[in-house]
Design a binder for these strands. Structure first.
Length: 912
RNA sequence: GCGCGUGUGGCGGAAUGGCAGACGCGCCAGACUUAGGAUCUGGUCCUGAAAGGGGUGUGGGUUCAAGUCCCACCUCGCGCACCA
């Protein structure tokens, strides 16, 4: 793609810029930094008397929560600082939140708008494996580059709260939170996490070893030997959420199921609350739905089937206990532990063969070949508890070992999968639900009326479920159950560049090794430096190479796994509240002010980021937050009240941007040529924030020209020529050249005329409303309309011109600040800080028109217009409409049936 | 397959049930200019000489009035995907 570099490409010619953004933007960025313009103050902080916040709100010195204006916490999903640098997709959300942060400040809110770095992660580690360079160095370099790029966009972050998850001062508290989870258990009676000390021990726990085993089995952070996703290429295990279509989400490498000893967090204990509390959040329906799907709550019953000739019973899970009479066979997953016991001698060979077949299939194959059902008969039979029917037991891979009980009762009459299977293997299909009139019962899976079902006959599905479940409970052969798709969170990784677990392993007197937590005073536990970052030959994590670090006196060894990248991002929004505090992960006072101010939105007011975190980060964060809430460390049940996903930005070819397609747009190039304000404006002008939309550099030129028109509205043309000549002559052009520019002569202290006030107030109204609704594109269009009109004004009242800059400021803050200060200077005033200036007040009186032009329709088609005075009676409007000359051809020879008058808007004459 | 979303000029996109296409890009014409890829002005849904007619994925419906509401279908996108 040719770069639109304009005159820059032609040797000997200096680029003619629309306006000198290259001098203006650094000037204001420097000023904001120097002044700490965007610093947010915690209760207890001292507010300098000369800070614009102090002047605006009349507070200074040490402030209390009550003295501070209403809080507004607006948060971006912090980035992983990759080596590739910023992508045009990053600044989309960041620009949106910056505009809103600046707007909230103008409206008098006390805005917290921080930025930081999610800096643990695989790329820096892979680079270390290749080059031996410590990931810390790589990470520092990348952070420096990201910082430069983000700062050059002029975002109003409070940089004093900047954090990085890789900073020991930060991950000390990530480890501390892990210890809180480790030292807690979930009490089902209270439905809350509680300190492990409240745990009761069952009878028989008479030794410390038994008590420990019981305790360790109940912790929110526990160790489990279980089949996990192992990725050979990445050299680590992955969480369920990190595996997509049988491949690693990162890199797309093969993964295999392998039993390993791992740290796991008990997120499933919170499944119900994670689900229920979604209803309290202002998130998009689709996002909530994704979380609901992932949690996958399903209500049903477990039913125990007795076996013919065996003492064991087979427990199945079903959401349709009402169809129990229609269960004509059972299916176990091929991995079910009873398969070996029940298989008859005659079927043994076939069963073993099938099991081997299934085991060799990857999960991908198993799901891709889902269409064609396979399975084999075990030779065993079960007894249907409801009617004593003898039904065969099969194994088939359409039943998953990992869900429910790993076994089902098959109801081929009313389940699509069972129906397919039964047809293929000629198993009996019976009807037990009567569908609505005219619907075939075969394969009918909806709700209906029970039939051929003994005492359930005639009951609607819902009641039949209740009745049969109660009956099963009475018989002791079943019970109401809720199952979740959500699995506990696999929390350990075989990596170097992550938080080490604050855990050691000690071998007890019984020879059994057990884990123990480090004391909080031993945090942070910093990973040792290595010369080789690869896992060991025996498959141990890289940390195992640091023998001095791992081995402690008395045969005690450190845990060598590390935490996943999600750990650091689980709670960063809390650390921002008190980023430098050393007394705790967050101070109680800061937490309660920013997250739980009386009368304010609880939690983060607005959180903006990509959909890719819909189930990972957002679910994990909510889980940690709830655990911290239960344990009394935070004061709200949910972290993020309102959440908005920005849409993807595609390349100019409407394809996903990627290096291989060569359609990646680098923000640095755009900034170089058009400046930060134009870049910001364009990203917001492209379309609705949440939509996917293609990049178009021509579009940037459009908004850039708009900013040029704004500039020329305020700056004298002749002085611009002088400025440009000086600029061309200067060896090292500096900001002092800007002094050559003078204000446009048309800007004077005259009173605004009615048309001018109308233009301004229409703009104030539209921009204000659109910002409230996050409609940045239409807000910008309203400002363009204003500028197009103001261009034609002979006199430009300074009051109007000032107010417009305030509207523009959130979007194009550098240009607005520059013109704002010039405007004040030209009239001998000291400019108050634009960043803290009160938002212009909309006055509807300016929009009222004395005369109205009203369209006249005949039978809904536009035929003409009439001009009437405001307040004209309906009768008079009707008279004039009927007399409307342009409409006469459609009214002649017709009978007027009805005249509809929409006040001030329209007249429609219905004729026949 | 299920769930959610989307469909409007050459393009990005606007339109509390009330004048479809705001604003921007592109394109056309003009002005200023040695010059224009700068700037300014005007034009730009289709058809038609005009009057007019047609037009928001398709088909139906509600309404004085439908891009907008209802029903059915189609398209594309996203998510889930044998979850019992």
């Amino acid at each position: 793609m040719p770069r639109h570099t304009g005159l820059n490409n032609i040797p000997g010619l200096v680029s003619r810029r629309q306006y000198p953004f290259d001098l203006i933007e650094p000037r204001w960025q420097h000023r904001w930094e120097e002044e700490s313009t965007f610093r947010a103050f915690n209760p207890g902080d001292s507010v300098p008397a000369d800070h614009p916040f102090a002047k605006r709100h009349g507070v200074s010195g040490t402030v209390t929560a009550a003295q501070l204006p209403p809080k507004y916490y607006i948060l971006d999903m912090f980035p992983y600082p990759s080596g590739a640098g910023l992508h045009v997709g990053h600044p989309e959300g960041y620009t949106a939140t910056d505009i809103l942060a600046r707007w909230r400040r103008a409206r008098g809110f006390h805005v917290l708008h921080p930025m930081g770095w999610d800096s643990f992660g695989l790329p820096a580690e892979q680079y270390a494996v290749k080059t031996g360079q410590h990931p810390r160095i790589t990470t520092q370099e990348n952070i420096a580059n990201f910082t430069r790029q983000i700062r050059s966009l002029g975002f109003s972050y409070d940089w004093s709260r900047e954090l990085a998850t890789t900073d020991p001062g930060y991950f000390r508290w990530t480890q501390w939170i892990f210890l809180q989870l480790y030292h807690a258990w979930f009490n089902p009676a209270t439905n809350k996490a509680e300190p492990i000390s409240t745990l009761d021990y069952p009878e028989g726990c008479d030794t410390e070893e038994k008590r420990r085993a019981h305790r360790d089995g109940k912790r929110l952070a526990y160790v489990s030997e279980q089949p996990v996703w192992w990725c050979e290429s990445l050299g680590t295990v992955l969480a369920n959420e990190e595996v997509v279509d049988g491949k690693s989400e990162v890199g797309g490498f093969d993964v295999v199921r392998r039993p390993m000893r791992q740290w796991v967090l008990r997120i499933t204990a919170f499944a119900d609350r994670l689900l229920a509390d979604l209803n309290t959040l202002d998130w998009s329906d689709s996002l909530k739905e994704m979380q609901r799907n992932w949690i996958g709550r399903s209500e049903g019953a477990e039913v125990d089937f007795a076996l013919e000739g065996h003492a064991a019973r087979i427990r199945v899970f079903t959401t349709r206990p009402d169809t129990l009479y229609g269960a004509t066979y059972l299916v176990l997953s091929p991995e079910h532990r009873l398969v070996a016991d029940i298989t008859s001698a005659a079927q043994r060979a076939g069963v073993l063969d099938y099991q081997a077949q299934v085991a060799s299939k990857s999960d991908l194959e198993r799901t891709e070949l889902a269409k064609d059902k396979t399975g084999v008969f075990t030779g065993a039979c079960a007894i249907n508890p409801v009617n004593g029917a003898r039904i065969p037991i099969w194994i088939a891979d359409y039943v998953l070992a990992s869900y429910g009980t790993g076994a089902i009762m098959a109801v081929p009459g009313h389940d699509t999968r069972d129906h397919e299977f039964a047809q293929k293997f000629q198993l009996p299909i019976v009807q037990v639900v009567q569908p609505p009139e005219g619907v075939d019962w075969r394969g009918f899976v909806g709700e209906g009326t029970a039939i051929h079902s003994g005492h359930l006959d005639g009951l609607p599905t819902r009641e039949a479920k209740q009745t049969i479940t109660a009956w099963l409970e009475g018989q002791g052969t079943g019970r109401r159950t809720i199952h979740y798709k959500l699995r506990d969170w696999l929390f350990s990784r075989q990596r170097y560049w992550g938080e080490p677990f604050p855990i050691v392993w000690r071998t007890g007197a019984d020879g059994v090794s057990h884990h123990e937590a480090l004391a909080e005073s031993e945090l942070p536990l910093v990973p040792p430096d290595l010369s080789d970052y690869k896992p060991t030959a025996s498959g141990d994590p890289p940390l195992a190479r640091a023998k001095d670090w791992v081995n402690l006196p008395g045969g005690v060894v450190r845990e060598t796994n590390t935490m996943p990248q999600w750990a650091g991002s689980c709670w960063y929004y809390l650390r921002f509240l008190d980023a430098r505090g050393g007394a705790g992960f967050v101070s109680r006072e800061a937490e309660s002010y920013w997250m739980n101010s009386p009368g304010r939105t609880p939690g983060v007011d607005l959180y903006v980021g990509g959909t890719e975190h819909a189930v990972l980060h957002l679910l994990y964060s909510r889980f940690w937050h709830k655990a911290l809430f239960d344990l009394g460390h935070v004061s709200t049940a949910e972290p993020f009240h309102k959440l908005v996903n920005q849409g993807l930005i595609l390349g100019e070819d409407s394809q996903k941007m990627s290096k291989s397609r060569g359609n990646v747009v680098n923000p640095d190039d755009i900034l170089e040529e058009f400046g930060a304000d134009a870049f910001r404006l364009y990203e917001m002008f492209m379309g609705p924030l949440a939509d996917t939309k293609p990049w178009n550099t021509r579009g940037v030129e459009g908004v850039y020209r708009f900013l040029g028109r704004v500039w020329r509205l305020y700056v004298d043309e002749k002085s611009e020529v002088a400025f440009e000549q000086a600029l061309a002559a200067a060896a090292h052009p500096g900001t002092e050249l800007l002094d050559l520019l003078i204000l446009h002569g048309a800007i004077t202290e005259v009173a605004a005329g009615p048309a001018q006030s109308k233009a301004l107030h229409a703009c104030i109204k539209k921009v204000s409303e659109d910002l409230e609704g996050l409609r940045f594109n239409t807000a910008i269009s309203a400002m363009m309309v204003f500028v197009n009109e103001a261009n034609g004004w002979q006199a430009r009242p300074v009051s109007v011109m000032k107010a417009f800059l305030q509207l523009l400021a959130p979007f194009a803050p550098h240009l607005a600040e520059e013109l704002w200060s010039r405007l004040h200077a030209a009239f001998g005033e000291r400019a108050p800080s634009l960043s803290h200036a009160p938002w212009p007040v909309f006055d509807p009186a300016h929009l009222v028109e004395d005369t109205l032009e009203i369209p006249v329709q005949v039978n809904g088609k536009l035929r003409g217009h009439i001009t009437v005075m405001r307040g004209t009676s309906d009768a008079e409007i009707e008279r004039q409409a009927l007399a409307c000359e342009r409409a006469q051809p459609w009214l002649a020879q017709k009978t007027v049936k009805k005249v509809i008058i929409v006040p001030n808007r329209l007249v429609n004459i219905a004729v026949a």
